[in-house]
Computed example of a mutant assay.
Amino acid sequence: MAEFKPQQKNSASKAISPKHFYDEESWKTPTSIQRAWFASGCTTLLISVAKSLIMISRRSTGLRSWIDPVVAAIVGYVLGDLGTGIYHWAIDNYGTARTPVFGSQIEGFLRHHDHPSAITKRHIATNLYVGAAGFTIAVLPMNIFCTNPNLLAFSAAFLGCGMFCQQLHAWSHTPKGKLPRLVVALQDSRVILQRAEHAAHHHPPFDSHYCIVSGVWNRFLDKYKIFWAMEMIFFFIFGVRPRSWSDFNSK
């Protein structure tokens, strides 16, 4: 059976010194393309919300016409947290830096385990442009053709979580005193990912607390070993071990 080689993590860590990793200039000064994708994602999100509100107001026949899209947005937000957990689990445990499309993200997440606070040094456009590009490509056609405000509200919330999750992730690594008061209030109320909630992920073998929007799914997923079960299925079908099984620091 194929077996994951743990050297991949070590090579990613050795490829760059901690000082260089923290002082990476390209993180602090985004390129024009990164800025453009970030602006595009934010604009697409605003258009989606605005179109949904306009359609609701035109069709308004009472409170029910507003309740449905609000519920749809809440459901999208809750499922968005689950989606980031599944994606984070997959990136953390499978693939290499040479994996098509996802390779750079896999390498970045491996480095992040070694230097968790480095993410706080990144410019917001550098941190979010990949998610913003995906959001724009997925949602822009819906903004043009969709006439269902509930679907627009759901997609904006669900896919918007994917776009902004890395910033919520970065805030969970930022000292409380350096965060805006609104962000701290949202963390304390568990609307967005708390620092303590995500800190539980950063212990070898990095096999729990994967969700990075609000973390509301983490307790359920970890208690019932959902990801462990998925890893077992992958192992018995494909013979591939997740990285967390091969971590030399793990029990």
Rank of each mutant, 00 (worst) to 15 (best):
H112M: 03
Y77Q: 06
H169Q: 07
H209V: 15
D81P: 03
R35L: 12
P180K: 12
P100S: 07
K251G: 15
K19G: 00
R190E: 08
A170F: 04
A200M: 15
G239E: 10
S13Q: 01
G131Y: 00
K225F: 09
W228N: 11
F235M: 01
T147G: 10
I212E: 08
A156K: 00
G62T: 08
D92C: 02
L110K: 00
F154N: 04
G134P: 03
L179H: 10
E107K: 08
L159C: 04
G76F: 06
D247V: 15
Y224C: 09
A15L: 13
T99C: 07
R35M: 04
G177P: 07
S214T: 06
I33Y: 05
E231V: 10
S117C: 05
I233Q: 07
K28L: 11
G62A: 12
H20T: 05
D207A: 15
L152T: 14
C211V: 09
R98Q: 11
R241Y: 01
D114P: 02
W217T: 02
V191W: 06
R98C: 01
A50S: 13
Y77R: 11
E3H: 10
D114Y: 03
K14A: 09
L53P: 01
G108F: 04
E25S: 07
P141I: 11
H113Y: 02
A36S: 12
T96P: 02
L45H: 10
E25V: 14
H169K: 06
H169S: 03
V130I: 12
W228G: 07
A196L: 15
W245G: 14
